[in-house]
Design a protein around this nucleic acid. Structure first.
Lengths: 235, 235
DNA sequence: CACAGCGAAATGTCCGGACAAATGAAGCGA
DNA sequence: TCGCTTCATTTGTCCGGACATTTCGCTGTG
């Protein structure tokens, strides 16, 4: 039933694992294109597509004539990532997610977020105890992983951790995209605000070990109720 | 002299111009790969590289079997992937800062951002080559570190790196705070938008080794022109 | 030892071809 | 009309090759 991943994507996942497993450490030189071609029996084009993914992800750096190196000395920056990852989950743990609607994800929605498969949508609000609603949230989750709950149910804690525990699927990476948007009428009503109110849109894609998106959340934090802070340390 | 741009880059610029000039409007279908090949006399590979640039910039969307369409203005955003210290600086390097105003920082402003000392304010816009203004920026910098430039000057590259090099003060840490706001009239005018338009506010504090703030920047990225992407790796 | 020059190696650019997969429209039949 | 199939179109994937450009180590010369 599953469509097989393209070769260059599985290759990228394999090379990514070589880095995260510690086979190649930050600062190490990475195999050359030709070496990858021979080792994995692929064309140079395929190898380059895979390397491009790692480059875009900031895992490696490439210089013409010089070669490829694993991005070096990112101890501090990576510590930052750990902090972020944990604090992201910590925040999710502290807040409650109140479901107001549950429906299937149409192809249009799936298309918009680049998802493939059978997903359902959970809509609702996220709030901390005794506080006004903090965000309007839409969650797209694969049907076989979705929690079994009815409209109006209140879900405590982090959905991603729930999935990890109940289905044994570890989340390997989260990519996050933030931008400013105007509140749509539906979300505005949920948060008791006027449509058009500025809001911070955070789209998070939770990925498993093979880089497949298994959960996608769209959070709308209205102006004044939420700020995202982060620190970047120089190495 | 300037090194000549690769063919796929000039082609991308040409295609980008076709969109920004209005030759192709949002929602229009875009020439197919083969049409571009014939019109510009390039190989399909080169055409695809150019189209990939426009796709990464969010100017077009492509669907297998269906074709290529210019995306609606609403959705068009220039995603910036920033997941560590280096890429934050890299982003600053690629963009130009155009100064529109220079004045002293009053005590009220300094108080608001918790600064002490003698600061001046540089206001202006930040943009990348061939792209519309991306952000309205206010920079508070210590007077003795401020670059010597007049109104209307264009500053290339990163201001923080400039300070590091010219004054030998290394930046040790950057803290960043992001939230949604409504555009104030002044910034709105600079970006040619209506006041009240949603925007992403990013306040960055650049600190030296002793944790003193030596530069503070307030960037307002209007909705639809900028998205902030980051990756969190589990370790 | 310093240095210029050379050349191997590595990535970047560009071309060609082939097949796969998805789309959408046209045609066909019940 | 509605539904189904067929088919050309379009983008995605993968392969092969060629040359350009940059880097870096080696080597010979002074």
């Amino acid at each position: 039933m599953k469509r097989p991943l393209p070769l260059y994507r599985t290759l990228a996942a394999s090379l990514r694992a070589d880095i995260t497993s510690g086979k190649f450490k930050p600062g190490d030189s990475f195999p050359t294109e030709m070496e990858i071609c021979e080792i994995h029996s692929v064309s140079r084009h395929t190898a380059r597509e895979a390397l491009r993914i790692l480059t875009d992800d900031g895992l490696i750096e490439r210089r013409r004539g010089a070669g490829t190196v694993v991005v070096g000395e990112r101890v501090a920056a990576f510590a930052q990532s750990i902090n972020d990852f944990d604090s992201l989950l910590q925040y999710a743990r502290d807040a409650h997610f109140q479901v107001t609607e549950r429906c299937d994800a149409g192809s249009e929605i799936l298309d918009r977020y680049g998802l493939t498969g059978d997903f359902i949508i959970l809509e609702g609000i996220r709030r901390e105890l005794d506080k006004p609603p903090q965000a309007s949230v839409s969650i797209l989750v694969r049907r076989d992983l979705a929690p079994d709950l009815a409209d109006g149910a209140i879900l405590e804690g982090s959905i991603s951790e729930r999935i990890e525990q109940q289905h044994g699927i570890p989340i390997a990476r989260v990519t996050q995209r933030m931008e400013a948007v105007a509140l749509d009428p539906k979300s505005a009503a949920r948060l008791d605000l006027d449509p058009g109110t500025p809001a911070l849109s955070a789209i998070r894609r939770f990925r498993d070990g093979s880089d497949e998106v298994i959960l996608l959340s769209i959070s709308l934090y209205p102006a004044g109720r939420f700020a995202y802070e982060m620190q970047l340390e120089r190495r």
